[in-house]
Amino acid sequence: MVRVTRAWLFLLALSAGSTALSVAVAEGALAGILATLGGAAILTLAWAKARMILNAYLRLDEAPALRRGFGLALALYALVLLGLYLAG
């Protein structure tokens, strides 16, 4: 299976996972600290999807030094979003 097809399937699976988590929170299946952890997991899945698009779709996996740079910037940004979410 070609790399972009694996990436596509991975992206679909992660999108389904984040939607399922959101539904669980919205319908009260996850409450309190579990709801907060669910939100953190949704952001973590978003970070994983963004990494996959950069590396597979935009082909940064062919440029290891740039992949590391983009990966670091994206990870720091995801941490900023997580911090703002947890503060809310």
């Binding site: 992206l11 984040s18 952001l43 978003a46 779709y57």
Partner: peptide, 21 residues
Amino acid sequence: AFWHMVDLVWVLVFPVLYLLR
């Protein structure tokens, strides 16, 4: 590459605006 950028932005917009509680 431009199209993938649009894709990349959406995978961040979708959870932040629509999913985070």
